[in-house]
Nucleic acid binder design. Structure first.
Length: 170
DNA sequence: CATATGATGGACT
DNA sequence: GTCCATCATATGG
């Protein structure tokens, strides 16, 4: 499964992927346009160094949904890498395909897709309410340093689709 | 129970 | 770019 890879690889693989959220009879479809990779070890930006539960969740097997709350926002992450590795990818922005809502930020997209802590530690693989599809598509991937962190690692771990209007920041 | 703390967002200059 | 409201967590007593 593609989520088994290193967080950095998965962050890139996830771009262009389709997120399908079922709410009752409604189906919300969105395209992932911006991601960030996070590590539990050797990552000055990651809260996983201080936060036990976050760390533990990142060590779970690939495909585990990780929901992290900060201020009054939820952030949607997918655990990646081998079990015990403490890696995850944060979904920072999506492009709404069949609905109209601002999703250009980690807190905004969870609000739009009605994702909250109830998804925490559930698996994306066998989830009916939230699914992820991969799509073959060509686009340029742009990278930059992560956003909102006081001290980032040495290499850029944020990836987004070039020239896409729905990314949180150019 | 009390308190510290943001992987934010929005408003404003 | 800067400022800051605001609240779910984690952690410690």
């Amino acid at each position: 499964m593609f989520l088994d890879n290193n967080a950095e690889i998965v962050a890139r693989e996830l771009l262009g992927g389709i997120l399908v959220r079922n709410i009752g009879n409604n189906e919300l479809i969105a395209r992932i346009v911006e991601t960030e990779a996070y590590y539990g070890n050797d990552d000055p930006a990651s809260r996983a160094c201080k936060n036990g539960d976050l760390r533990k969740t990142m060590e779970m097997s690939a495909g585990t949904i990780l929901v992290y709350g900060v201020h009054n926002n939820w952030m949607l992450n997918f655990v990646t890498g081998e079990k015990g590795k403490a890696e995850a990818v944060l979904i920072r922005a999506v492009e709404p395909l069949n609905f109209d809502s601002r999703c250009n930020g980690p807190g905004l997209l969870t609000k739009a897709l009605e994702i909250d802590k109830s998804f925490h530690k559930r698996s994306i693989i066998k989830n009916k309410d939230l699914r992820i599809l991969r799509k073959k598509e060509c686009f340029d991937i742009e990278k930059s340093f992560r956003i909102g962190v006081s001290r980032d690692s040495e290499k850029p771990l944020r990836f987004y689709i070039k020239n896409n209007d729905f990314v949180s920041r150019k």
